[in-house]
Amino acid sequence: MDPLIWEAPFQNVFCLYFSGMGPVHMNEVQCTGFEKSITECAFNKEALGCSHEEDAAIRCNVPSMGFQESLRLSGGRNPYEGRVEVLVERNGSLVWGTVCSESWGTMEAMVVCRQLGLGFASNAFQVSADNVVMSGVRCSGTEMSLSHCLHHGAHLSCAKGGGRNAAGVSCSETAPDLVLNPQVVEQTTYMEDRPMFMLQCAHEEDCLSSTANQVPANSYRRLLRFSSQIHNNGQSDFRPKAGRHSWVWHDCHRHYHSMEVFTLYDLFSLNGTKVAEGHKASFCLEDSECDEGIEKRYECANFGDQGITVGCWDTYRHDIDCQWIDITDIKPGDYIFQIIINPNYEVPESDYTNNILKCRCRYDGHRVWMYSCHNGGSLSTETEQTFPGLLNNQVTHR
């Protein structure tokens, strides 16, 4: 099929035919080129007459800026992995040295792979090395070069001196990309009052607020319930980082947890204060449904392999344990509801900016409404500028 071309007000970006998956969300898109997000462009919300034969994608022309000349991988089994080495100036000479791996993680590895043109990070690890020349590296994940990340500069501070504590990465040409379906959250939200004696398993797995620890068994908890439909729109399957030998069996619910925390659910006041929270360990990662022509590969039954195939989605229904936020203690009012998938970046993905979903939430004491749900975190320009802390998926380990 001939490529489909979008007219663009800037050079070096053009679009071509792309094999589509799922519903069509935007039609007749018209951008000026100055928008922060494609969702800020004018578009027709009606997808009538727009099929996947007209799906758009882009190819970006990234200019060569020489970043890869000051970074290399060494000692790996192939060109896509190895010890990270950077070229720095020391005493008037350029020398190669290693990077201290303290706080080294997926975001830093992502920058290394991007800088070298090796795709996406698949693993961040420690290797045995010496001659540390860079320490304190902290990246947001969007930088074009490791030198653009925060670091200590010339004042090195690496507790173990580099030995057994230097940074390594492995890169991959493809990566998964998880995205939540906002419409499913809106359409399935409701409130339930559930007695404590029916919540014992959930209580054991820390799925209720802390005040549930002091209440009698004949009391109840008020739960904000909803379904989550998590699509893998990437180019490779999403698999738990831990192998099945290290999955944790939870006897009460009779299932294995393959990830410590897979999803976070939070409720914020309009001034950005967290008022209620929930969390969902991965009960099981499996293919609930797939796009036409794609076969399911992962099923949790009988201790099967866990994961989400490209073009498939995992649905956590509103009626299963922990698929809620405990709102027993909050007052009626307007709130911001937030979901974050893979919050601690435990599994590398090609894009983390779409791992967050935000909604407006209204609770009148008797009923609850969820509306204006969408991916990306931003609810409005005003919200971005006033409450920047709400708009990223940087979370601390729990």
Rank of each mutant, 00 (worst) to 15 (best):
S228M: 05
R360T: 15
V184M: 02
P332Q: 10
I356K: 07
C373V: 10
W6D: 08
D287F: 00
E53H: 14
Q235I: 04
E102P: 00
S236C: 04
G333W: 09
Q68W: 05
Q126Y: 10
G82I: 10
V24W: 00
P388W: 02
E289G: 06
S228V: 03
C41I: 05
H25Y: 12
N375T: 14
C312P: 04
L199P: 05
T396N: 12
K160I: 05
L285G: 04
C60V: 14
Y363W: 07
F197C: 12
A217K: 07
M191S: 12
G307Y: 01
M107V: 07
Y316G: 10
K331T: 15
E40P: 11
Y17A: 13
L264P: 02
S70N: 14
F268V: 13
F14K: 07
D334R: 09
V261M: 01
V132W: 01
H52E: 14
T174W: 03
T142V: 13
P332G: 13
C322V: 03
Y80F: 15
A276I: 11
F10H: 07
K36N: 11
Q385H: 07
D329V: 09
C290P: 04
R367E: 11
R360M: 15
Y17V: 14
R77P: 05
D55F: 05
S140W: 01
T328P: 01
R398I: 05
C31F: 00
H25T: 15
S288L: 08
I336F: 11
N123R: 13
G304C: 06
F67V: 11
F262G: 15
C158I: 02
V261N: 09
E289H: 12
K280V: 08
R90Y: 13
C252Y: 00
L224Q: 02
P240Y: 02
L267P: 03
D314I: 01
V310F: 02
A56E: 06
D55P: 03
F268R: 07
A56S: 10
A217G: 06
L16Y: 09
D321A: 12
E143G: 08
L270W: 09
H250V: 10
G66A: 10
S378P: 06
V29Q: 03
G141D: 11
C100S: 06
E192H: 05
E102W: 03
E299K: 09
C373W: 00
Y316D: 14
R59A: 15
R114L: 06
C361P: 09
D206P: 04
F226P: 01
G105F: 04
T328M: 00
H374Q: 14
R360K: 14
S37P: 08
M198L: 11
Y335E: 04
M191C: 08
S64T: 12
S209T: 09
S135W: 06
V99H: 03
C41D: 04
G76S: 05
G136M: 02
A242E: 13
C300R: 06
V84W: 08
E204F: 10
G304H: 02
I38C: 13
L146M: 15
D351V: 11
T188H: 00
K280I: 10
Q30A: 10
R239H: 04
M65K: 11
